[in-house]
């Protein structure tokens, strides 16, 4: 598993609960190093162990934990860059939703060796979408659910999100877009210096 994925998990724990808690998670997962490196690759077992350990240390089920990771990824000021990259997906939340299938391709534009889930977007009715996610690692649906919640806020859209289990291990996020322009949302300047 790409170091970026592992490191996101690690930085979420450190940023939200502190370095000591990360130390506990690391010890419980018996990681043979202090920190994950974002540009290295790790055995996926270490990723799974880390998720399990974080879940145990924080007394949170894996789905809630990963949903928090997703929200944190797009709303934490230190991760502004990720929010920005996602905002390139479109002018409105609807555009953004439609761009989600491109997400793996976009990620690989920057990092050809990045592991990314398979994402399929289906439109049930004009305001209702089903996002189907398949990946080697369980729980990506929860991460995306958290991230979508954060991005809806970012765009100022009012949405209701729900996780479902799909067939053959797929994870489903059902998205009800109630109001695309509910609130003002945050601005997005194409030019990174304008931030």
């Amino acid at each position: 598993m790409h170091g970026l994925v592992n490191r996101a998990l690690q930085e979420f724990v450190k940023d939200t609960y502190g370095a000591d808690i990360w130390g506990e998670v690391r010890d419980q997962a018996a990681l043979p190093f202090d920190e994950f490196e974002s540009m290295l690759h790790y055995d996926i077992r270490l990723t799974r162990l880390t998720i399990d350990a974080a879940s145990a240390v924080l007394h949170k089920d894996a789905a809630s934990l990963l949903e928090d990771v997703g929200s944190w990824l797009v709303s934490n000021p230190a991760q502004e860059s990720i929010r920005r990259l996602l905002r390139f997906g479109g002018t409105t939340f609807l555009d953004f939703l439609q761009s989600l299938e491109e997400l793996p391709g976009r990620a690989r534009m920057a990092l050809p060796d990045l592991d990314m889930p398979e994402i399929v977007l289906q439109t049930d009715t004009p305001g209702r979408f089903r996002l189907e996610i398949r990946w080697v690692l369980d729980g990506m649906g929860s991460v995306l659910l958290g991230a979508l919640r954060g991005m809806a806020d970012d765009y100022g859209a009012l949405v209701v999100l729900e996780a479902e289990h799909g067939r053959e291990g797929a994870e489903i996020v059902v998205i009800d877009l109630l109001d695309a322009q509910f609130a003002a949302g945050r601005t997005f300047e194409l030019d990174a210096q304008m931030r």
Partner: peptide, 13 residues
């Protein structure tokens, strides 16, 4: 826009 995205993403990596 994709070029801008790529430029920003590769600066990050």
């Amino acid at each position: 826009v994709d070029l801008l995205y790529l430029r920003e993403a590769s600066a990050l990596t």
